[in-house]
Design a protein around this nucleic acid. Structure first.
Lengths: 205, 205, 205, 205
DNA sequence: TATGAATGAGTGTTCATTCAT
DNA sequence: GATGAATGAACACTCATTCAT
């Protein structure tokens, strides 16, 4: 009764724990994050973490799921809208990914998953289908669209999509870990400009 | 003991252990690699690993040192030689990094260090000075050289260098972990072609 | 709450929980049975189990109490009735124990108590006085009766009673655990025949 | 160097740990025995237990194996020797089982395995083939032999073997747990006499 | 120089118990 | 009365490190 005010609604707990887990996974890596750390950050006991997520791996899986949900629909809509030149759409997609994903969630997802995907093999398919392929398809779509409009020329769509995707992922990856540790954070705005210029120039007929 | 002819020379032991460690760190990550695994791969007992490297962290530190040594000098020479156009030199540098580094050491270095740099903070300066900055300087040099020759135009050399470096690092990163796990290995040759085209086009005046 | 008609009567709850507990204790053992499993089988929440039985040990104690009650009175009456030869009464007692006890309760009681009696020392006296001694006394009574009628001869009544009791208990014990696991269930009817024959023959003058 | 005298030979460690485990499993049950208790009794650290036996279950499995080995060969020889009447051989087998097995190992084996067989399903076949069936076959052999010699009559060999085996197992079972806890230890000598008399009488033509 | 037995701190997970609702 | 979210002690297991040989 005394701490009623502090008793959050059950439905929120899972989210809070997941948020704490994502933050710590991103900051310290999966292996270096102890379940009790997650509990502490979420303001619960370590037993409570187990109550909501049976295993630490389940927590990681939930991270992937959460990542895959929110932002992607917006990106898909952006691509479906098909407004402006393909080059402009490419720029928008890059900017959107950078702005919506980097600071919070997506960059962390990639870093964590990259580090652990080898240790949880059944993770891979899940991640590939929920995150990687949908993302890649956005880039492929824009490249194909640009080719159809004679804006772009590209004899290897798959690889170009990988380059576009990868060099953007690198921004998130880098800033989430190495950039901070080395005191060499990449300036997002400048990177995006360079990325866009390089992307469009590289696809020009 | 009696079979002296079949005993490897002690001096080689440390190298063998280090090679084994690098391979396993790259494949499974630092945390998931056990010292006994390293020992097994190196063909020694796990006690012997401790004999050559006092702690597991020392092994990681030694990885960084070794990484910084061998291949870099060749790249430096390539850049110093200054033969052909800046674009051609950029292409050569990319290819050199890809061919000499990916399959063996560099990609592993990056993956491992990326994962652990947050847990061993004093690593960062070491890595930055021995690996990151020398690499970046090669790209900066080529960009400046191209600009001086009016081959390239670039109003943000630092960021362009980061993009070039980063999108190449992504190739190593990706194939070392995600590509394998997701069965989406990037074809190095095709990636390099796309990278070169995009790099040169993005720098064209 | 509104659906009062479908709510079981509180008084029954404790019994239902106890029945569920006994079943699970017998099937999986005391240690391997979780309170939530008991709750689930009883159709209540695990909080409710704690409401009726303060601790898991209390649940075990209640099992012993319940065991001691029901069936024993019927057996006592059977022996008190003293109808037919002592051999026939022995056969009836064995059959009664087997039929009324094995499938439901007694076998489970023995298995569970056997397993935990060492961990709850104060259990022992309770069990001895409420279950073991009354049972043994039935066998002793029949043997003495047979001797008085010159039907039986026995120079060690106590041990004979133990053999009769024990070889019957084995039937319950075995089928409750080993028989099932090893796919070597003892056929009750055939075992009883062999038991009776052996018992009567062994007591024949 | 100082404790060289106390450094037992590695080969003995596994045996010591196993002995400690068997003792504790028998005294307290599998679930109530903590690995560190086993370690303590064996005079090693709990880590050392894990060094010799990867899991607690492996320790249990090793118990079964040890049980199955030693004494059984002697019993088999006893039966193979075929000296004296079948009744005498039956008596000898019972006595042998009782004397060699009860005080030390076999009774514990049965108690522990009985308790856990349901929790480690793949155990069952192992136990059945290594322990149960060989034992039963000894009894079956003696019964068949007696029948062949017209010493015995039995129309259900399998069940008679179960009764003989089971009522002997009960002696071990009981004294290992209930007998001690209830202060109702069965006197082995007297029980064996009653068992032999009942067995032979029950099989008499 | 090399070994591998031994250690024990560290961690994920389980689950009986509590208690605010 | 009944619930189930929350707790935290307990435990099995892992593994880097040590050290006697």
């Amino acid at each position: 009764m005394s701490d009623v005010a502090f008793r959050r609604r059950p439905a929120e707990r899972g989210e809070e724990i997941l948020t704490a887990a994502m933050g710590l996974f991103a900051e310290k890596g999966f292996g270096a994050t102890r379940v009790v750390d997650i509990a502490r950050r979420a303001g619960v006991s370590h037993g409570t973490v187990g109550f909501y997520f049976a295993t630490k791996e389940a927590l990681l899986r939930a991270c992937v799921d959460r990542m895959a949900l929110a932002e992607f629909d917006d990106m898909q809509r952006l691509v479906d809208a098909d407004q402006g030149s393909a080059a402009a759409q490419l720029q928008q997609l890059g900017r959107f990914m950078a702005e919506h994903c980097q600071s919070e969630e997506m960059s962390r997802l990639f870093r964590v998953v990259e580090g652990e995907i080898g240790n949880f093999p059944d993770f891979a398919a899940h991640f590939r289908d929920r995150v990687f392929e949908p993302m890649m398809e956005l880039f492929r779509t824009l490249i194909r669209r640009g080719i159809a409009r004679h804006e772009f020329a590209c004899d290897d769509i798959e690889t170009c999509a990988q380059l576009l995707f990868g060099s953007l992922v690198h921004l998130f990856d880098w800033n989430a870990a190495m950039g901070a540790a080395l005191d060499r954070q990449i300036d997002q705005e400048r990177y995006l400009r360079a990325w866009t210029r390089s992307a469009v120039a590289g696809l020009r007929p």
